[in-house]
Amino acid sequence: MKNRSLVSINDFTKNEHLKILNLAEKFEKNPTQNTLKDYVVATLFFEPSTRTRLSFESAASRLGAKIIGFTDAASSSVKKGESLKDTILTVSNYSDIIVMRHPQEGSARYASEISPVPIINAGDGSNQHPTQCMLDLYSIRKTQGKLNDLHIAFVGDLKYGRTVHSLVIALINFNATFHLVSPVELKLPSSVKRHIKDKKLNYFQYTDLNEVIPNVDILYMTRIQGERFADPLEYERVKNSYVLNNNMLDNAKKNFRVLHPLPRVNEISEDVDNNSKAYYFQQAKNGVYVRQALLTSILGVN
């Protein structure tokens, strides 16, 4: 993995994914180290994403790295019309690795082709967000004790949700069974389903959330965004039919856990938070360990 950019989840193999997860486990036991004290990590956020940026900066800080960068395009030379190429080439002079978030799809792939230092994609428009996917895998393995042969339900916006697409594609390597719960307007695109079919795995589609809960190991909730609907009334109807609350979890299996990439709006009611089956805040915490593992692997420092 040394010196290789991470743009899409498929840039790394299944074995490499597992190596990252194993390394992240070590960081969870011992998160504060000084292994990156001679390194500079750039975090270029062409659009703001406080949560993701803080997670990366926390990961880098705990390893002793210096951090440079900007938090949104308005506070950088991008606002003056500098091209992405010029920004990347300039910042690569000052840093050993670049973590970037950009509103346009394909930006990270392009950056990885022109940059002399490796790029970690922290989200390129609606396309990819591979570090989120890695922390999701980590959280699933940690809660279930394994990654193979699990029943995973995805709920909400399966059409536009990039985290769902990447995670489905990553889980295909682990013989998962997929339970897809969404309004008909927001079904998983056939381009993603094709990957499931290619591996001869099973998927089931539902419109009712209650139906899947007793049968699955993981319930991966996502937010349904209003801008996906032409009709605001339709949005209101749909939004409220995919809300998880505590009494719906009574028949869940013992190992069942609720995941969510956060931020949530109303799709998980707050009474779920204290249920031991709610895992989304720990999930976010796992992001730091996974990002530590990625930074050190890509920089070749272990």
Binding site: Q104, G106, S107
Partner: peptide, 30 residues
Amino acid sequence: NCITNHQNISTKFDVIDKEDLKLHCHYCEK
């Protein structure tokens, strides 16, 4: 919203279906 439509970048596609023409963008993956 593909980066190739906003910056001076040559497009690259893989032809994934020749019968019912489908081009997969190397950058945005759409």
